[in-house]
Design a protein around this nucleic acid. Sequence first.
DNA 1: TTAAAAAAGGGGATTTTCCCCCTAAATAAA
DNA 2: TTTATTTAGGGGGAAAATCCCCTTTTTTAA
Lengths: 211, 211
Amino acid sequence: MYKVALVDDHTLLSEAIGGLVRQFINFEVVNISVNGKEFINYLETANSDKPDVVLMDVKMPVMGGVETTKYLSKYYPDIKVLALSVEEEEGVVMQMIRSGAKGYLLKDTRKSILEQALLEVINYGFYYTNTVERIVKQTENLYEEEVVLKDREIEFIKHACTEMTYKQIAEKMFLSPKTIEGYRESVFQKLGLKNRTGLVIYAIKNNIFTP
Amino acid sequence: MYKVALVDDHTLLSEAIGGLVRQFINFEVVNISVNGKEFINYLETANSDKPDVVLMDVKMPVMGGVETTKYLSKYYPDIKVLALSVEEEEGVVMQMIRSGAKGYLLKDTRKSILEQALLEVINYGFYYTNTVERIVKQTENLYEEEVVLKDREIEFIKHACTEMTYKQIAEKMFLSPKTIEGYRESVFQKLGLKNRTGLVIYAIKNNIFTP
DNA sequence: TTAAAAAAGGGGATTTTCCCCCTAAATAAA
DNA sequence: TTTATTTAGGGGGAAAATCCCCTTTTTTAA
């Protein structure tokens, strides 16, 4: 019997998907958690039934999919993570893959594909849909020298997703308005943005800010 | 037997939730559609099995939950719509309720609540969770003279969620930049916004623009 | 058919944003 | 220890966005 765990804050969905998984032959559901933190707690419980595969949502409160996947890759490399999300953003997909996810399923996949994906992840170590494969290749080919935003820049971006002017942001961050201008410029340059509107859209797409 | 239909673009979820519903006694699933258009097509097919309740997602391609619910309230008032979504935005919830939804479930509700909600909608005509009830009351008490955005304004807002300048938006809409300024001003005034950043956030929160 | 309302456009001033280029201090790397 | 790199700060100008107040044309409704 292959053991599957589900990590998703949408209880109804994880219960329902758990039902589907139980229908597959040779599969059982050993744990359902509502976020990464809870799942890791489960794992660290003595004689907990370690799963072979985890179906992991990306956007979750407390501890998100990316963070959790990174943790699992490090401390439980035998547990395979299969991302299962509505997020189609290339950035998000790549983040999960880079964090160690063995596959990425969109929530509009069919039951049979889910079963196939689970089996392939267990037997071959990965499962990529065409879409995801395309995204991975695209991103690799473009070898876009992975944009790295600094903490202070991310903080700035969050404030920029607000009706505050840069002057007000400067006050809030206890910095001179000119320093904020500096952040603005470096962020625009790194991300290839034209204006603040673009920044807001970027921040939302990349989960830096949630409206 | 109560008949249930599911309308959701996330196939995996609707299949899985369909499985849950079938477990409830006296319930059967008569149709699963991926968007409103497809569901209405189903309804209009001769001798289609008309459902008692529809579990309706809000955000869907082609024909969304709000539009579909309005249509159903008008042409199929006997079919009760129960919204089932991850959208927690007050605006979105209210839109669904105003469009005729008999209840609004978040996707993190439990299986037992789903069954209860289905039964209550069928027997009493509605099912409101505490959260939704609070939102409805809040909104009603504030009797915020329901902001009505005109088509042209909405079109403008969509363009404003872009890196285009107002001048470029004007070109795209074949209008003078000054007219665009007029839209900007009336929209800002109606929605109580300070600047374009606020507009972008509003548009995303209210499903006018999807990043 | 006439009054009212909505849509389209405008002048001009102020603020904010954007852009390019530059300096000083603190940190990290060699 | 010297050399980069990062972080913080700045000047000045151009462009865009914001604001207020105003006119003309088109639609709509009484």
